[in-house]
């Protein structure tokens, strides 16, 4: 069974139609990278999959359940889908540990001990054990983003959505976050990753999708997309990336 099936997804903001019929299927344990120009709708797509944006048309099926059907409990759906944002969005008034345990305790109703056990295990795994009592503003951007990833993982999601998670980071902090994602991929996590890090996408993705004008214009293996793109628009996009020195 596929982990995620999106069919005919359409989304407009007022008169601006951002997504014009997205079709995407992601298998379990697959890592799919979404690339595309800024403003092409990558964030919007991920937010739609997490039901943070109401959609205009189409269906989204996660592990066999149509989450866009009427009457679906959005809170229950979101517990199975983790999302990590470009700007971290940690809760600034809570310690790292409280950030990570909030949703397991309140949404999954785990006991404090169970939630903390889960959190500490993840923090240790990603080298953040000594930060558990720090507040977010005392952490570097890379550490904050790793905490945000851990916070999403603490819900034990079936699917992770990562939205340009390294774009807000100083260059020297990018690697530590990418390494976390590599580790997740190696552990078999199903992921949809919007990214500008082409080298990383090439390295980690099972499949790369190029988003353009509200549709997935071209998709294929990293090798196919990066070395033999078929579409002229894909070629132009990659050309610009190369000129910017990012591939």
């Amino acid at each position: 069974m596929s982990a995620l099936t999106v069919e005919g997804l359409r989304k407009s903001f007022g008169r601006l139609e951002v997504l014009r019929g997205i079709d995407l299927e992601v298998a379990e344990h697959e890592v799919v990278c979404l690339i595309g120009a800024s403003g092409s709708g990558k964030s919007t797509f991920l937010r739609c999959v997490n039901l943070l944006e109401p959609i205009d048309a189409g269906t989204i099926v996660v592990a066999g359940e149509e989450i866009t059907a009427r009457g679906v409990d959005v809170n229950r759906v979101r517990r199975r889908i983790g999302i990590v944002f470009q700007a971290f969005n940690l809760f600034p008034h809570m310690s790292v540990l409280a950030n990570v345990t909030l949703a397991p305790r309140r949404a999954l109703r785990l006991s404090r001990a169970d939630a903390e056990g889960r959190a500490v295990e993840l923090l240790e795994r990603f080298g953040l054990a000594d930060k558990r009592d720090e507040y977010p503003d005392r952490l570097s951007g890379g550490q904050q983003q790793r905490v945000a990833i851990v916070r999403a993982l603490a819900m034990r999601p079936d699917l992770m959505l990562l939205d340009e998670v390294t774009s807000a980071l100083d260059p020297e902090l990018v690697a530590e976050v990418l390494n976390v994602i590599r580790e997740l991929a190696a552990a078999g996590m199903t992921m949809v990753i919007a990214t500008h890090e082409m080298a990383f996408a090439r390295d980690i993705a099972d499949r790369v999708c190029f988003l353009d004008e509200g549709v997935i214009l071209e998709e294929g293996s990293p090798d196919a997309i990066f070395t033999r793109p078929r579409e002229a628009r894909t070629q132009q996009f990659l050309q610009r990336i190369v000129e910017a020195g990012r591939l």
Partner: peptide, 11 residues
């Protein structure tokens, strides 16, 4: 974005 982060976790 704070509310979005909270809701995205299933709260």
């Amino acid at each position: 974005s704070q509310e979005a982060a909270a809701r995205s976790l299933g709260l």
